Amino acid sequence: MSSCEILPFTASLPDTVVFDLDGTLIDSAPDLTGALNATLATLGLAAIPEDEVRHMVGHGARKLIERGLEAHAVPKSATEVDALVEWFIRYYAGHVADRSVAFPGVAATLNWLRARGVRLGVCTNKPEALAKQVLIALELDGFFPARAILGGDSLPVKKPDGRHLIATVEALEGDLTRTLMVGDSSTDLRAARDAGVPVVLVSFGYTPVPAHELDPDAVIDHFADLTKVMPQVLDRHRARY
C-alpha cells in the first residue's frame, strides 16, 4: 500500500491541484526525443541523446525545435522553424505514447485526491490536442475534465505567465486561494508565483536546474509523497499571505 493511500483525511487538503504534464505526470522524453530527432533528420542533422533532450523540454514544441537547432548551431528563419514545428507535431501525434509512461505513483495519487473531492487540472505548454491525446493513451484522462486540460495553445498566454494557471483553476471552478501547483521546472514555479499559488516540484523531471535549487515550497522524490507535503505547504502559504 502506498503512502498516498494511507494518509488520513485532513482539512488542509487543497481545493484544487493543477499539474504540469511532461516531466511531472508522465515521462514523455523518449517519444519527444524520437520526434525531435526525426525532425532534425529531415535536415540531415545528427540525433541528440535523450539525456540532453530532457533538459530542452518544457516551453512547447517550438522552443524544443529551436533548442535542437541551437545544439547543432544551425540557424533557421522563423518561417523555416514554423514548418519544422508543423512536421514535428504531425510526427509526434503518431508516436505520442510509443514509449511514454506515467511516473510511478501518479495514478494512485490522482485517485486518492479525486476520491476526497479535490479538483484536478493540467496546465502544460504542450499543444492541447497532444496533451489530451497522451493522457488518453496512458489512461489518465479520466482524472481531469477535458475543459481543465489547458495547453500552450489554449490561450494567448502560456507558462510561465500565471494567467495560464489561473485559467486552469477557473475552468475547474476552483478556489485560487486553496490551489496547489505541481510541476518540475522553473517554468512551473514562475507561473505559480505569478498566480500567487504555492508550488511543489518533483525532483525527477526535465529541469536543467535541480528542483531543490529553484526554491519551491516543497520538493518530492516520488509522486506518492505529494499527499504528505500538501498540508504543510498550504499552511505555510497561508501564514505568509
Score class of each variant (00 low, 15 high):
149 I>L: 06
20 D>L: 09
75 P>E: 14
129 A>G: 05
133 Q>P: 00
157 V>M: 14
6 I>E: 15
37 N>C: 08
137 A>P: 05
174 G>L: 01
28 S>C: 10
75 P>L: 14
34 G>C: 07
1 M>W: 06
46 A>V: 04
161 D>Y: 05
162 G>Q: 07
180 L>S: 01
85 V>E: 10
45 L>G: 05
186 S>A: 09
129 A>C: 04
237 H>N: 08
7 L>M: 13
104 P>Q: 14
25 L>F: 06
16 T>N: 07
236 R>G: 01
208 P>F: 10
79 T>E: 15
95 H>L: 11
199 V>C: 10
223 F>Y: 14
204 F>D: 04
50 E>R: 12
89 I>C: 11
128 E>W: 02
168 T>V: 14
11 A>L: 14
52 E>W: 01
69 L>M: 13
172 L>I: 02
10 T>S: 13
180 L>F: 04
229 V>S: 08
42 T>M: 10
196 G>K: 02
97 A>N: 11
39 T>L: 03
238 R>V: 06
163 R>C: 01
201 L>Q: 08
61 A>H: 04
97 A>F: 08
38 A>M: 04
9 F>E: 05
241 Y>W: 15
32 L>E: 04
29 A>R: 08
195 A>V: 02
61 A>T: 10
148 A>H: 04
176 L>H: 03
171 A>F: 00
104 P>Y: 11
226 L>D: 08
17 V>F: 03
109 T>E: 09
188 D>K: 06
159 K>A: 11
102 A>H: 12
14 P>S: 03
153 D>Y: 05
162 G>I: 09
152 G>T: 08
199 V>L: 13
203 S>I: 07
158 K>Q: 09
152 G>V: 08
146 A>E: 12
146 A>W: 04
176 L>R: 09
193 R>H: 10
105 G>W: 05
21 L>I: 13
232 Q>Y: 03
89 I>R: 13
191 A>C: 08
123 C>N: 11
74 V>S: 04
191 A>F: 01
55 H>E: 13
145 P>D: 05
175 D>A: 14
